[in-house]
Design a protein around this nucleic acid. Structure first.
Lengths: 153, 153
DNA sequence: TTTCGAATGTCAGGACTTTGACATAGTGGA
DNA sequence: TCCACTATGTCAAAGTCCTGACATTCGAAA
C-alpha cells in the first residue's frame, strides 16, 4: 500500500516556467500587450478601457469602486478618471450629494468610444479562447475564479 | 456593488467581469499581491525573485534573456539585475567575452536567499492550486499555455 | 448624543516601468 | 569583402503606479 509516487497534488516542477503562476503571468502579459496595441489606436489605455466597460455595465460607480474592480489603488484610479474626464468620456459631479463618493457616468462620447473599441477588444478575447477546447472554457473560468478567491481571502 | 448571482457563463457575457480576460487579470493581481507580501520580508521584489529562479535553473542568462523570460523590457531587466548585483546576489562580468551579452550567475548568497524564499513562495502556489480539482490542473496549465501562444504569435 | 471605526478622496514623494533613441557586436547574404 | 540585418546594452525622458499620510464623511455602538 501507500504506493502513490506519481500523482502528488503539489505537482511542483523544478522548472519555474511550468508553474501555474508563471503561465498566469505569461498569458496575462500577452493579453495586456495585445490590448495595449489595439487600444492605442483609439487613444485609450487598458485601465481606461476597463473603467469605461465597468461604467457602462454599472453607471454611478465611484472612484473607490472602480479602483477595486480594476485592481489598482484609489490613487491610480483617480488618475484614470481624470484622464477620461479631460477627454470628455465621463462626467463626475463636482460635489458629492451623499458621503464623499462622486458617482461617475459615461457621456455620449464615452459610450461611442466604448462601442468603437469593443469589437477590436472582443476579437482579441475570442482569438485567445479559440485556442482551447470549447468544452473547457467554463471550467477554466471557474478555476481562475476559485484560485483568485483563495488568494484574496 | 459588483454582485455575482447568475451561474451561466456564456461565451461572451455582457458583464465584462465574467470574461476570461478579467478573471485572468483578477487572479494574476491576487497572486502578485500575495507574492509581494512574502517577498518583502526577504527584501526582494517579484521581478527580482523571478530572476533568481531563472538563474538557478539556467545559469549564464543575459539581461535580454531574463527580460524576455520575466516579461519586462530590457531597460527594466537591467534595473532588476543592478539591484541584485548591489545586493551581492548575482555576479556579472564587467566585459563580455562574446558579443555584448554579459552572462549572469547566482552568488552563494543569492542561492541561499532563493532557498530561503522558495518555501514561502511555493506555499502560495500550493494554496492557489489547492482551490481547484487536482485532475484539472494539467488541463489548466495547458490551456493557459495555448492562450498565451495564440496571443504571442 | 457622543464617539469611534470604516470608507472615501486627496496630496506628496518615491519606486518602478515603459517609450524612444543610439552605439556596438555578431551573422548571413550579395 | 562589404553591406544590411538582427540582437544586445545603455542613456534620457516620461509615464505609471504605489506607499504613506491626512482630512472628511457616514454609520453604528456606547
Amino acid at each position: 500500500m501507500m504506493e502513490k509516487s506519481q500523482a502528488e497534488p503539489p505537482h511542483h516542477a523544478k522548472d519555474v516556467t511550468r508553474h501555474v503562476g508563471y503561465a498566469l503571468k505569461r498569458t496575462q502579459a500577452a493579453l495586456r500587450s495585445a490590448m495595449d496595441g489595439v487600444l492605442r489606436e483609439y487613444g485609450l489605455t487598458v485601465p481606461q478601457y476597463a473603467t469605461l466597460e465597468l461604467l457602462a455595465l454599472n453607471p454611478g460607480m465611484s472612484n473607490a469602486d472602480l479602483a477595486r474592480a480594476t485592481f489598482v489603488t484609489r490613487q491610480s484610479g483617480n488618475v484614470v478618471l481624470q484622464g477620461l474626464q479631460e477627454a470628455g468620456l465621463i462626467t463626475r459631479p463636482a460635489t458629492a450629494d451623499h458621503g464623499r463618493a462622486r458617482p461617475a457616468h459615461l457621456t455620449e462620447e464615452g459610450r461611442a468610444r466604448l462601442d468603437a473599441v469593443q469589437d477590436a477588444v472582443y476579437a482579441i478575447e475570442r482569438h485567445m479562447t479559440a485556442a482551447i477546447p470549447p468544452e473547457r472554457l467554463a471550467a477554466l473560468l471557474a478555476d481562475l475564479d476559485r484560485m483568485a478567491a483563495a488568494l484574496e481571502e
